[in-house]
Each structure stands twice: as structure tokens, then as C-alpha cells.
Computed example of a mutant assay.
Amino acid sequence: MRIAGGAAPVSFRCPSGVPVRLTVIGGGTGLVFGDQSFDMVGRQAMLVGPGYEESAGRYDILVTGGADALTVEGW
């Protein structure tokens, strides 16, 4: 999934058992990735959920242009 030009607010709810990778380019505030919360992330951030590298069935979320109030939950 790709979002270009920024995102605010956005929520992704991923199915149980499907690993996720989130990449934010352009910085972000108020990010929630599973059980992790971030007030602020720098210019580029990559967050990878458990089992992502080993799984063929996975989500790869890319947000360019920054993000505010972005939530990724599930897996």
C-alpha cells in the first residue's frame, strides 16, 4: 500500500497473522505501530513487525510526504 503526499489521520487494521512493514518518508508525529507509540519520527523511519522477513504473505506500507496520527494495528 502506498500513500503519497502525506497522511493524517490514517488507520490500517491488518489481519491476524499477517506481518507488516511500515516505511514513513518525510517524518511523522503521533505514530502507533502495534504496541509501540512514537510522538515523533525523523525524516525516514522503518518499522518491521515480527515475522515480516520470513513471510511471503505480508503487508508493506509506504507513506511519503510525512504522516500525522498514523496507526497500524493487527498481526
Rank of each mutant, 00 (worst) to 15 (best):
F12T: 00
V41H: 02
L62A: 13
R13S: 14
V41C: 11
G51P: 00
P9V: 07
F33A: 02
A45T: 13
I3L: 10
E73G: 11
G57E: 12
R43W: 15
V18A: 12
Y59P: 01
L22S: 00
V18C: 09
E53S: 14
L47V: 12
A7Q: 03
G49T: 01
V32D: 12
S55R: 09
G49M: 02
D35Y: 07
S37G: 12
G65M: 14
D39P: 15
P19S: 03
A45S: 14
S11D: 08
V20L: 00
L31P: 04
L70G: 03
F33I: 01
G26C: 12
A4D: 09
G27E: 05
V72T: 06
P9T: 07
E73N: 09
G28R: 02
A69H: 12
G51E: 03
L22I: 00
S16H: 12
E73S: 08
L22W: 00
G27D: 03
V48I: 15
G27V: 05
G6C: 10
P15H: 10
L31C: 07
G74T: 07
A8N: 07
R21A: 03
G6W: 06
D35M: 15
P15M: 08
V48N: 00
G34N: 11
A67G: 05
V48D: 01
G17T: 03
L62S: 09
L47Q: 10
G42M: 15
L62Y: 09
P19T: 00
G65S: 08
E54D: 12
V18I: 14
V10P: 02
G74S: 10
G6D: 07
T29W: 08
G51N: 10
V20A: 00
R21W: 02
L31D: 02
T71Q: 11
Y52R: 04
G27M: 07
F38M: 06
V72H: 02
G17D: 03
R58P: 01
A69Y: 09
A56N: 10
A45W: 05
A4M: 07
G17K: 03
G6F: 04
A7H: 06
D39H: 15
V24N: 01
A7K: 03
I25R: 11
P9D: 11
T23F: 02
G27K: 04
G51T: 00
V63C: 12
P9L: 06
P9R: 03
G28P: 10
V10H: 06
D35P: 05
I3K: 05
A8D: 08
T71N: 07
L47K: 04
G26L: 11
E73T: 05
A8Q: 06
V63E: 09
G26P: 10
V18Q: 04
L22H: 00
G17A: 05
A45M: 13
G34F: 11
Y59I: 13
G42P: 14
M1V: 11
V18T: 13
D35W: 13
G28Y: 15
A45V: 11
G17L: 04
E54S: 08
L70F: 10
A69W: 11
D39W: 13
I61E: 00
P50T: 13
D39L: 14
E53I: 13
D68A: 05
D60S: 06
R2N: 14
A67F: 04
F38Y: 15
E73V: 11
S37F: 15
F12A: 01
G51C: 03
Q36P: 13
G28C: 10
L62G: 03
F33M: 02
